[in-house]
Amino acid sequence: MGGTFIRLADQGHDVHVAYQTSGNTAVWDDEVLRYVEFATDFAASQGQDTTHLEQQYTEMTAFFKSKQPNQSDTQEIRTIKGLIRKGEAIAGARLSGLKDENIHFMDLPFYDRSKVDKKVSFEDDTQQTMELLQQVKPHQVFAAGDFADPHGTHKVCFEIILEALNRLRKTEEWTKDCWLWLYRGAWHEFEIHEIEMAVPLSPQEVERKRLAIFKHQSQKDLPVFPGDDAREFWVRAEDRTRETARLYNELGLAEYEAIEAFVKWKFEE
C-alpha cells in the first residue's frame, strides 16, 4: 500500500505508521557485522575508545561461525538487527512524506517471546495497541492482510489490531467512524471480486513507492525469508499492482499504471 501511503501524505492527511514488530529475524548476520564495523570506525574517527565495540565484534563473529540452524541470536545481535530495520523504516517513511513524530515503533513483546515460547499471551500487545489507537484516534486503519505470510507474523499482528479495536468499539465513540482496511504485500493479491477500494497509481507514484521500498536495504536482493517466490519484494509489488490495473482495464475501466487493492473489514455489531 506504499502508493496509497504517499497519496495520503501528499494530500495533507495526518498519516501515521506503526511498525508493530522489530523485524529483527529478517536481517542477514553479515549485516550485523557491517554495522558494528561502521560504529567502530566512526567511534575511532572521533577519538573514542573502541575497546568494547571491538570485543563485541569478536564475540559476534565467533557466535555466527558456530551458529546452528534456527538458533536464536543473542540479545545484542537482535538489538542491532532491529535497529537496522528501524533505520530503514524511518528512511522509507520519510521519503513517503511522513513526519518523524508520526512514525511509531511498537516493538510488540510477542515477537521476541514467541521465539522461545509458542504459547504466549497477547494481552500486553493488545493494551499497547489500544494506547496508540487512543492517542491517534484514526479515521482509517490499514493493516496487512497477508495471511499467506509463511511465518504467521502478519496474522498475529492483525489479530492484535482487531482485538484492540473491538475492545475500544465498546466504549470509544470515535471508533464508530474508524474503518479497518486490509491490504496485501509480498505474497498474494485479493481476487478481483473481493476488492472494495481500488487506488490507482500514476507512473510517478509507482516510482516513488519503489524508491521508498529501496530504503529497506536489508530486504533487497535476496531477503532472509523470500517464500516460494524468487522475485524481489519490490518486483512482486509492482507486478501485482500492474496486474490489478490490467484486470480493471479489461473490465472496461480506465487504464492506469498500477492499482493498489483493499478490502474493508466487517466488524460484528
Rank of each mutant, 00 (worst) to 15 (best):
G3C: 02
T4W: 08
F5N: 04
L8H: 04
H13Q: 08
H16N: 11
H16L: 05
Q20N: 10
T21P: 00
T21L: 09
S22F: 00
G23I: 00
A26T: 07
W28Y: 07
V32E: 07
V32F: 03
R34W: 05
V36F: 07
V36Y: 08
T40V: 08
F42G: 06
A44H: 04
A44S: 13
S45G: 07
H52D: 14
E54T: 12
E54F: 06
Q56I: 11
Y57K: 14
T58R: 13
E59D: 14
M60A: 12
T61I: 05
F63N: 11
K67W: 02
N70H: 14
Q71I: 10
S72D: 11
S72H: 15
Q75C: 14
Q75N: 14
E76R: 15
E76N: 14
E76V: 12
I77E: 12
R78K: 13
T79Q: 15
T79K: 15
I80S: 12
I80F: 03
K81S: 09
K81Y: 02
G82R: 01
I84T: 02
G87S: 08
E88D: 09
R94I: 13
L95F: 10
S96L: 11
L98C: 10
K99A: 14
K99H: 13
D100K: 13
N102I: 03
N102D: 10
N102W: 03
I103V: 12
H104G: 04
F105G: 06
F110V: 01
D112T: 15
R113M: 15
S114V: 15
K115N: 13
V116N: 05
V116Q: 08
V116M: 11
D117P: 01
K118Y: 07
S121E: 05
S121D: 12
F122M: 07
E123C: 03
D125R: 03
D125Q: 00
Q127K: 10
T129C: 11
M130R: 06
L132A: 08
L132N: 06
L133I: 04
Q134R: 09
Q135S: 13
P138D: 08
V141C: 05
A148M: 06
A148F: 02
P150Y: 01
H151W: 02
G152V: 00
T153A: 03
V156E: 02
E159G: 06
I161M: 09
L165M: 15
L168T: 01
K170H: 05
K170L: 10
T175L: 10
K176C: 05
K176L: 09
D177I: 03
C178E: 07
C178R: 04
R184D: 03
A186S: 09
H188C: 12
H188G: 14
H188T: 11
E191K: 14
I192E: 10
I195S: 07
E196L: 07
A198L: 13
A198C: 06
V199I: 15
P200F: 03
S202C: 09
E207N: 12
R210P: 03
R210H: 13
A212V: 03
K215V: 08
H216I: 05
K220W: 06
V224E: 06
D228A: 15
D228W: 04
A230F: 10
A230Q: 13
A230W: 07
W234I: 14
A237V: 09
E238T: 13
D239L: 12
E250C: 07
A258E: 02
E260R: 00
E260D: 05
A261E: 04
V263F: 01
K264G: 04
